[in-house]
Simulated assay, not measured.
Amino acid sequence: MGRSESARILRFAAIGGISTLIYAVVTLALSDRHGFGMPATTASIAGYGAGAVFSYCGHRFVTFMSDGAVGFEIVRFACATAIGFLLSVGLAVALADIAGLPALVPVAMACALVPVLNFVILRKFVFTAAMR
């Protein structure tokens, strides 16, 4: 695959899908109703962190094939990740910890919303050197 937009979207979907899967599996494996007994919020934090590490490496080297300055990109990636992180944790707090829904509900919502948000932010804000 080359640098075309359709190829980039396919690569993003693959990397994003794997990082989303890492988030979901770790979160559910650690959560009180599915695994090791952690509250959904704590499990979500751990799951998001694990997915974020994979996501940065995958998107930098595979999705956007960036040769930009790591120091520049990693700070912006951290900001983008913080936005998705706050969304996923907020969903866990509101829907699981407060509303009492199963952890699967906020996980599913985060898995749908965060990737869309991330593509826009990563393309327009983080890996801008790769887009020139």
Rank of each mutant, 00 (worst) to 15 (best):
C79K: 09
A29V: 02
V116G: 13
A96D: 14
S88C: 14
L10I: 01
A14W: 12
V120L: 13
A14P: 04
V53P: 03
F61Q: 14
K124M: 12
I9P: 09
H59E: 03
R76D: 11
E73T: 03
F127P: 07
A69F: 03
D32H: 08
A50H: 07
F127C: 08
S88I: 15
R123E: 04
V120C: 11
M65A: 14
M109L: 10
G47R: 01
F85M: 11
L113H: 01
R132N: 10
A110V: 02
S19R: 10
L87K: 02
A78N: 13
H59D: 05
G71M: 05
G68H: 09
I9A: 14
G37V: 04
I98E: 15
A46Q: 08
L28A: 00
F77Y: 15
L117R: 15
V120F: 13
V107C: 11
G35L: 09
R60M: 07
A80V: 12
H59R: 03
F36M: 10
S4Q: 04
L95H: 05
L91D: 07
V120W: 13
R33Q: 14
M38K: 10
L87M: 07
R11M: 05
S66C: 01
S44E: 04
G51T: 12
G47W: 00
G37P: 13
V70P: 09
L113W: 04
R60L: 05
G90C: 09
E73P: 05
Y23N: 11
G2M: 12
L104F: 06
L86V: 15
V116D: 11
A29F: 05
R132M: 06
I9S: 06
M1G: 06
D67M: 11
G37Y: 15
A52T: 07
A94L: 01
I15E: 00
S66A: 00
V116F: 12
A43Y: 11
S55V: 01
A108K: 02
C111V: 10
M1K: 11
G16L: 13
M65K: 10
A110S: 08
M131Y: 13
I121S: 02
A7R: 11
L30V: 02
S55A: 10
M131S: 11
S66T: 02
F127K: 01
F125N: 06
A82I: 15
A43T: 10
Y48L: 07
T42C: 00
G16Q: 11
A92N: 00
A82M: 13
S4T: 12
V114A: 10
T81S: 15
A14C: 06
A129M: 13
A112Q: 01
A99M: 04
I74C: 03
F77Q: 12
L30W: 15
A24Q: 12
M38G: 04
A13C: 03
V114R: 03
T41K: 02
G49W: 00
R33K: 07
A7P: 12
A82W: 11
V107Y: 04
S19V: 05
I45H: 00
A46Y: 02
A112L: 08
R8W: 05
A129I: 15
K124S: 09
G49A: 03
T63F: 06
Y48T: 07
S55P: 00
S19I: 08
